[in-house]
Amino acid sequence: MRILIIEDNHDILANLYAFLEAKGHNLDSASNGYAGLALAAQHEYDVIVLDVMLPGMTGLELCQKLRGELRDATPVLMLTARDTLQDKVAGFDSGADDYLVKPFSLVELEVRLHALLRRARGQTVGGSVLSVGDLRFDTENFEVKRGGTPLTLTKTGYTILKCLMTQAPKLVPRELLEQEVWGEDRPDSDALRTHIHALRQVLDKPYDFAMLRTVPGIGYKLLASDATV
């Protein structure tokens, strides 16, 4: 991905460069709103990482100009230390596509950037029905079938499965799954492991091939076949 980062915190910027460049992404950066807007006007980017609190021009103002004056639809992931509902609404109202509260996981940030890029490129999964191998999930009606056989999950199981199927066959960090299930109010205990075990009992135990795989200490992924490992 070609990514524009508009961030005035040098430590955060250095961490983003170290992590994202090591993953093969091409980065440009600006430390104030005016310079960031100029780069966005001059070049094409796959995604923009935009801090809210910037010198000269705030991230909210920049995003409004990006959408209004420049007619630029590049996906924007907004970074902020503010986590109230009002702050989030202001971010989305300005034209942002996603919102990440500091401090954040670099792994989660990259996962969100990939999701924004897929959405921008129209890489959706057939309306409300997700499909991985012989597994089907109608997300509107909460109907899951494997090989045509209906599966009954818990509310949390549906949430976890949707996240895994959306990203499949990519690895989903446990931090992202916890965020999807509990938001910022994550439990102290290893509750996620318990829910994964329950999901695995329904999804894989009756079948010869196990779709749900654990990457110890990192996260989980959903595979359609052994060929996708």
Rank of each mutant, 00 (worst) to 15 (best):
F19A: 14
D134W: 00
L151A: 11
Y99T: 05
K221V: 05
G36W: 07
T154L: 05
L199K: 08
V111L: 15
D98Y: 01
A14W: 00
L4A: 09
R119H: 13
E184Q: 15
Q42K: 10
L66P: 07
A40S: 13
D98T: 06
V76P: 10
K221M: 13
L39H: 08
I6S: 01
L39N: 06
T156C: 03
V89W: 07
L223N: 10
R71A: 05
G127N: 13
F209I: 00
I6R: 05
D83Y: 05
Y34W: 01
L117M: 14
D83F: 13
L151S: 05
P150Y: 14
L113A: 10
S29G: 01
T80F: 00
Y207N: 02
D138E: 01
Y34K: 00
T156I: 15
G127E: 14
D51A: 12
A227C: 02
V107M: 12
G126H: 06
L16I: 11
E180Y: 10
D190Y: 13
A120F: 08
L153P: 03
S189L: 02
N26C: 02
A224D: 08
T156G: 06
A14V: 02
K162L: 04
M1Q: 10
L13F: 04
V52L: 08
S29H: 12
G183M: 12
L60H: 14
L70Y: 03
L222C: 05
A81F: 00
D185R: 15
R200N: 10
E21Y: 01
R136N: 11
K205C: 01
T58I: 05
L62T: 02
Y207R: 03
A38E: 14
Y207L: 05
D46T: 11
V181A: 10
F209R: 07
S29D: 13
E44C: 10
T194D: 10
S131N: 09
T156Y: 09
S225Q: 04
V229K: 13
Y207K: 00
L212K: 07
L79C: 03
T194S: 08
I196T: 11
G91H: 04
R200I: 00
K102N: 02
Y45K: 01
E61F: 02
P169I: 14
H43E: 08
M165F: 02
L192M: 09
R174T: 09
T74C: 15
D226G: 15
E110Q: 14
R112D: 05
L113M: 15
G56F: 08
L60S: 02
K65M: 09
P169N: 06
C63T: 07
T228E: 15
V89K: 08
P206Y: 05
E108T: 14
A41M: 06
D87F: 04
G122V: 13
E143V: 15
V172T: 15
L130W: 04
Y207F: 15
A35H: 09
L27T: 08
L77K: 01
G36I: 03
